[in-house]
């Protein structure tokens, strides 16, 4: 009954790894867009916007991503909204990523020295022009290492999507383990695939850092 782990299975895991990558990419893109808005709201000189952003960040960071997955998958379907596993997972991880990226980027925006703001104001730039032309370009360099650090976490955290039946790399490994009862080889292969993904992310980041000439 129990079969051997074979090349076919490595291929099956590679196919599943595409979903890990797709989920990470989609959540990074959507989450990143939301995070940009939240980070700006969080830092702009307007109290109400600050509070809204702080509330959002705390709400999302203070609840487990597992719970968010359940809310979007089972919660919505209980109200008659048919949300697929992919939609629910992308929604949950986008929101999860947005809160953490917003906080990372807020820190980066605020660590751009005050005189940069003042100088650009003195040049007659308006708030969003100061952001766009002076502050963000500098903040991007500062934010690169922590952002990539978070993305590496995100790659690995997408495995939580298995709870709503989304078959990504870890879940596929789980299924193979139950067909072969050979956990060592199955999960070593899975781990190797995660390593390739995360390590390439780190390499890209290092390359980017160099090309952006981060001085410090």
């Amino acid at each position: 009954m129990m079969r051997e782990f074979g090349l076919n299975d490595v291929y099956f895991l590679l196919l599943a790894a595409r979903w890990t990558i797709a989920l990470t990419l989609a959540s990074t893109l959507i989450g990143g867009l939301i995070a940009l808005v939240v980070a700006i709201l969080r830092t702009m000189p307007f109290r109400l916007a600050n509070w809204l952003a702080i509330g959002y960040i705390n709400l999302v960071q203070g609840t487990p991503v597992l719970g968010q997955l359940f809310i979007f998958f089972f919660g919505f379907s209980a109200f008659g909204l048919d949300v697929g596993a992919w939609t629910a997972a992308v929604t949950a991880f986008s929101i999860y990523a947005s809160a953490f990226l917003a906080e990372i980027w807020r820190g980066s925006l605020q660590s751009v020295p005050k005189p940069q703001w003042e100088t650009s104001a003195a040049l007659g730039l308006r708030y969003f022009e100061q952001l766009r032309y002076v502050v963000i370009p500098q903040a991007v360099r500062i934010s690169l290492p922590p952002t990539v650090g978070f993305l590496v976490q995100l790659v690995k955290n997408t495995s939580l999507a298995y709870v709503i039946g989304f078959v990504e790399l870890t879940r596929a490994g789980n299924m193979l383990n139950n067909a072969t009862f050979a956990p060592l080889i199955v999960f070593l292969t899975v781990a190797a695939m995660y390593f390739v993904m995360c390590f390439s992310l780190s390499l890209t980041s290092r390359k980017l850092e160099r090309s952006l000439h981060v001085a410090h």
């Binding site: 719970g67 359940f70 919660g75 379907s77």
Partner: peptide, 21 residues
């Protein structure tokens, strides 16, 4: 982690029981 999962499934199922789609 397991407790959270178990609790979440229980809540999801109970919720579904209330809503009865």
């Amino acid at each position: 982690f397991k407790q959270i999962t178990g609790l979440a499934f229980a809540v999801a199922t109970a919720l579904a029981g209330f809503m009865t789609p």
